[in-house]
């Protein structure tokens, strides 16, 4: 999708968005994030080019924003090796200030490694200093509405829906994307949700996430524009009435029926 127009939108050419494994890591509707990026960029007069990169496809020379979603276990195993081989390139990008959003299975595989139930470690892309362990039998999946507060000052309250078996733990150099008020978060133990590295955000939240968390969407867009233009770009406020109402509705649902964070994602004894 290529769109043009609007003041300053084309300063550095179209915003280059890479959608990783969009045809495989697609089961939890993270496609909504790609849709939201396109629509918000259009509203802001920014041209966007989305490049879909599948298994075995080469990465483009450069990108401003990378998106990856969640998949089923079988699909994650399928892409793990291919993604790990791209680890050095993705790490270079993140250090160069490329904005990224990795959700759920994509977040796990953007970590250092993922250890499955039989103890086998799948290597990750190493973008985030996190590790993920599939819990033993008897541990429930972490499923439900989430309400969290982002550690990013310009993002604030975040709403979404989590559905994951793996428990993710932050390493010494990682900082959480958010703190959970309702829901399980990374591991049901420490109250953290997701991880950050420079302009990259990892998270367990679906919803789809970006359509109804416009502050995060704008944060990522600003980051992507900053990378494209080689200078810090801040975006003017722009109302998003439908998104604001959907956000409020999801927050209300999470407050009503999600468990308050209470280290509850443990096996029934």
């Amino acid at each position: 999708m290529t769109m043009r127009g609007g003041a300053g939108g084309l300063a550095g050419g179209a915003l280059r968005v890479v959608s990783l494994y969009g045809d495989v890591m697609n089961v939890y509707a993270d496609r909504g994030n790609v849709i939201a990026v396109g629509a918000r960029a259009r509203e802001r007069g920014v041209a966007v080019e989305v490049q879909r990169v599948g298994i075995g496809d080469p990465l483009p020379e450069d990108a401003d924003l990378v998106l990856i979603g969640g998949g089923q276990d079988r699909e994650q195993r399928r892409i793990a090796e291919d993604l790990a081989a791209r680890g050095p390139a993705l790490q270079r990008w993140v250090d160069d200030g490329v904005a990224m959003l990795a959700v759920c299975g994509g977040f796990q595989l953007f970590g250092r490694w993922y250890r499955d139930t039989s103890g086998v470690e799948l290597p990750g892309a190493g973008v985030f200093d996190v590790t993920t362990v599939a819990p033993g039998p008897g541990w429930p999946r972490c499923i439900g509405d989430v309400l969290a507060t982002s550690t990013l000052a310009d993002v604030g309250e975040v709403v979404g829906f989590e559905n994951h078996g793996g428990r993710t733990y932050l390493g010494p150099s990682a900082r959480p994307f958010a703190r959970v008020t309702f829901g399980h978060g990374n591991n049901g133990e420490d109250g953290t949700e997701g991880a950050l590295r420079r302009r990259a955000v990892g998270t367990y939240l679906h919803g789809s996430l970006l359509p109804k968390n416009v502050a995060l969407l704008d944060h990522l867009l600003a980051g992507a524009l900053s990378h494209r233009d080689g200078r810090e770009v801040s975006l003017p406020a722009l109302p998003a009435p439908y998104a604001a109402r959907a956000h409020a509705a999801a927050a209300e649902v999470a407050r009503r029926r999600a468990p308050a964070f209470a280290r509850d994602a443990r096996p029934a004894s």
């Binding site: 849709i35 629509a39 959907a246 409020a248 509705a249 649902v253």
Partner: peptide, 21 residues
């Protein structure tokens, strides 16, 4: 429906503005 606002947002992003929510 209970999540009318989510649906309205989905349709708006698809280029279909709801007349009523």
């Amino acid at each position: 429906g209970d999540r009318a606002d989510d649906l309205a947002l989905r349709f708006a992003l698809a280029g279909v503005e709801p007349a009523v929510v």
